[in-house]
Amino acid sequence: MSQVNEPVLSVRDLRTVIHTATGDAEVVKGVSFDVARGETLALVGESGCGKSTTVLSVMDLHPRPTVEITGGQVVFEGVDLVKATEQQRRSVRGAGMAMVYQDPMTSLNPLMRVGDQIGEVVLAHGGSAEEARRRVGEVLEQVGIADPGRAARAYPHEFSGGMRQRVVIAMALAMRPRLLIADEPTTALDVTIQQQIIALVRQLQADNGMAVIWITHDLGVVARVADRIAIMYSGHIVEEGPSRRVFSRPEHPYTDGLIASIPRPTGSERPPLRLIPGSPPDPSHVFAGCPFVPRCPQAVDLCSEQLPPITERGSSSARCWVPPEKWTAPRSGGVSQQVAQ
């Protein structure tokens, strides 16, 4: 659970632009959030909402020169990485914070033994060969691989999907990062294997107080892993708050719609699913007002004229002109009510 202390990572007004042949597209449009030690922040959104570009910018892994950070701050343990030197950034990347991707083969070299790949991380950050060897054994054991010695000598193709994801997490742990960024790490896995990986990450967090940013589109996974939630839509964080609060009292119509669109997990009633009309906008689309307007059941005239500011509402905040008490269309009323009905 979250503790009140200094954030490990503090992102302020981050802006990222993709340069394309047909022009520039701002896909991260002034995003701000904090992650504290030991805390899991779920970054939630549908395809093209900018969640992956946000964390690639944070990790300084965005493909240059096509993708460029044009403004804002990424403060990791007190240092603004946007202004930092390449050397400072390199020492943070992989050591202070590490990343796990949806497809483990994105980060694994198929031609290299698993142990050598993990060891390479240690060597790259100035460790000795002896340290690297020792650390490989330690992290493979930490991620629950039964025979670390044998696993270290194996190639990636010799592992199942779930075991490969464990290997990738082991590699991410090599430098004892204080922040782990997991981009849909279980989306490609079977649900029983997903459960194992979630349990593993939570155990690691409990052991060493690592902060986690967990990117997902699956609200079930969010409910299972997150302390705090940030919902992204069209390059903006549209709602942010403690997990329980966001699920029980969504402040943004998009969050409300997402929650209502999921089938009920229990009970004998199966009413038609509530739906959000239309589909997520193209990331390059520029809106005069709120980007959710074309799909929003609660929109008023002001919404299409001006982008709403972020408004604090209790422990949550939302980028919406219309507070829930003024919503005119039916709403989900939050997940607990939906389940209870």
Partner: peptide, 27 residues
């Protein structure tokens, strides 16, 4: 039973009461 327990429910309160040990091993 294991499959049902592994599927996360989009409700943090329900999830908090569902500490089920993950199914071991793989298919």
């Amino acid at each position: 039973q294991a499959l049902q327990a592994a599927v996360p429910i989009a409700d943090p309160d329900a999830e908090a009461h569902r500490e089920v040990a993950p199914l071991r091993g793989e298919i």
